[in-house]
């Protein structure tokens, strides 16, 4: 099983933001995309998930060999793709449990009891140190940045995708929250063996994880690839590489 991004070119509002990116993630692998602000990381993540406002100008996205480039976001999700949002939306009035139940029903034909469903949510929420009252509230409504990030990881744990793209799961988190979120990602990875792409600016979250590959993205392109040593390099030198 794999998620393969092949020579992807993406335009946002008429401007080419992603300029020929190729990454292949095998099941069980953890990849990291690092890069400065404006390098196209979030656009890449949204394009892989199928954001309708982005235009794919070239290349393709393959999930287990199947070309999913023209599929709708919900169709991609049904095939096992998940995206953690950098800025998750708030929907007042839509209860988190109702939402997650709808999502789970849409993603899987597997039958489950509501009792087991709630139990699974509470179990995962406890590990992520999410206050229990938050799961009874409207989706992300009035949540702090850190709470939203944890709720995204909680969704991932419950929905169990085959491949997950995590767009800055560490942004806006305090030191303890970064550790907790990293642990949540690790737990999910160990349980499911999913392939994961983590997008981040910072190395702190990576100190709690064991990524297989590091990709450095700048100006819409992957400019360096390698192992964990690249993280140290970025830490010491920043993103001022020669292309």
């Amino acid at each position: 099983m794999s998620l393969e991004i092949k020579d992807l070119h993406v335009e946002a509002e008429g401007k080419e933001v992603v300029r020929g990116v190729s990454i292949k993630v095998q099941k069980g692998e953890v990849h990291v995309i690092m890069g400065p602000n404006g390098s196209g990381k979030t656009t890449l993540a949204k394009a892989v998930m199928g954001h309708p406002s982005l235009a794919i100008k070239g290349g393709e996205i393959l999930l287990n060999g199947e070309n999913i480039t023209s599929l709708l976001p919900n169709e991609r999700a049904r095939k096992g793709l998940f995206m953690e949002f950098q800025n998750p939306v708030e929907i007042d009035g839509l209860g988190f449990l109702n939402f997650l139940n709808s999502a789970r029903g849409a993603l899987s034909d597997e039958k489950y009891t509501y009792k087991d469903f709630i139990s699974e949510i509470k179990d995962n929420a406890s590990k992520l140190k999410i206050r229990e009252d938050l799961i009874s509230r409207p989706l992300n409504y009035g949540f702090s940045g850190g709470e939203k990030k944890k709720m995204e990881i909680l969704q991932m744990a419950v929905l169990k995708p085959k491949f997950a793209i995590l767009d800055e799961p560490d942004s806006g988190l305090d030191v303890d929250a970064v550790r907790i979120v990293a642990q949540g990602i690790n737990d999910f990875h160990e349980k499911t063996g999913a392939g994961i792409i983590i997008i981040t600016h910072y190395s702190r979250i990576l100190s709690y994880m064991q990524p297989n590959f590091i990709h450095v993205m700048k100006d819409g392109k992957i400019i360096r690839e390698g192992g964990n040593e690249l993280v140290q390099e970025v830490e010491s030198k920043g993103y001022e590489y020669e292309e």
Binding site: N74, F85, I91, D92, G93, F99, S102, A103, L107
Partner: peptide, 22 residues
């Protein structure tokens, strides 16, 4: 888009949002 990324079809996503709003 957010709701669709969780597997929910667009029509259903719109209904969920509207129902929540009301």
């Amino acid at each position: 888009f957010y709701l669709q990324s969780r597997g929910i079809e667009e029509t259903e996503a719109r209904k969920l949002f509207i129902r929540a709003f009301v």
